[in-house]
Simulated scan of single mutants.
Amino acid sequence: MLKGLAITPPVVGRISIGKICEKNGKRLPEKDDQFTLTTQVQNRDGWMLHPADQALRKATTGKLRSIPVRVLFNDPDLNLRADYSLFDRNTGRPICVGNGETCRRVGKDGNGIESLSCPSPDGCAFGQQGGCKPYARLNVIIGEEDELGSFILRTTSWNSIRALSARLHYFRAVSGNLLACLPLELKIRGKSTAQSYRSPIYYVDLGVRSGSTLEDALRQAQELGARRRAAGFDQAALDVAARAGFANGAFEDSPDEQAAVAEEFYPNATPDREDATDGASTDTSAPAPTTLRDKLERKAVLLGGAAA
């Protein structure tokens, strides 16, 4: 294993609930109220759709607002990695990553990695200057073709991070550490807040699959867990291997993920923090609007994106 290189779950596709569009020469986030599954390949029109996207849409009527999934690991923090993150705007490489207590930061002139205290973005002068904010990555399995290949959802949405983290920890607790065996479903939920000017915002949540109860899901998890153990599947060893792989590098994001990081952190728009969309978020380092005209203009952008 190469030292200094984070070994992350194999990714076969991306999940988003938004996209970046060109408007008047600017790259602006366009919100959506449904999921989109893409490959990891971009063309002039953006990320190319994954075949699973069309397959899931055929199985539903209307918009794609739920996706049947499983997770790879029993440890919730391996499935969803959330940090306070600051990236270089030019290279897309991480500069500082922390958890609210400690952080790893690139040293001056790019020399080495320093371990420092992390007061969170609101209390960190270094983070406030560069646009540090919560950033999470969720890996899930979609379909049965590749049981170790995953789709990744990247998000800077506080709502999504809170909901997903809580659900993963709760499901592990009630299942008796059978989280990876539970038949789950990613869902789009909406809410309105004062920060969104009462217009709807959308975030990602996790639950048992539609048409099923928690008791049904628990029984299925127990049955799958028994079959896996009988076949020699060692879930505990998989979790250990994943934990060692993440710990092998100072930062999870690699240079070849620059496009995804830039799209998440630095598009040319500044909606409110609570309104960040998954896979098409916004740069919150710019100042908030202070005049009524600014607020009305921002609201018009938000409403225009929500209707798209």
Rank of each mutant, 00 (worst) to 15 (best):
A247P: 09
A280S: 09
S254A: 15
R93M: 10
N248F: 11
E22Q: 13
P134E: 08
L186M: 11
V97N: 01
Q220H: 08
R243V: 05
R105A: 00
S85K: 00
Q129C: 09
D283V: 15
Y203T: 00
A59L: 15
T213F: 05
C118F: 10
S157N: 01
M48E: 12
T156C: 10
E274V: 10
L224V: 03
M48S: 10
C21T: 13
Q258E: 14
G279V: 05
Q128G: 07
L78P: 00
E264H: 10
A217T: 04
G245S: 11
A259Y: 12
A230E: 04
K31D: 07
R298Y: 09
E114M: 13
E252M: 15
L116Q: 14
L49Y: 11
T8N: 09
F87V: 00
K191A: 14
I20C: 02
K299M: 14
F35R: 00
I141Y: 02
I7G: 02
I15V: 08
R65N: 14
S210Q: 11
T8A: 08
T284R: 15
E30S: 06
A300D: 13
V41I: 15
I17C: 07
G62T: 12
Q222S: 06
L72F: 06
P9T: 04
A250Y: 12
T61H: 14
A230Q: 04
G176Q: 10
L138M: 07
Q258R: 14
A247G: 12
V71S: 01
K19L: 09
A308V: 06
N268L: 14
L64Y: 04
S199M: 05
R70W: 05
N74M: 05
V261F: 07
P51L: 08
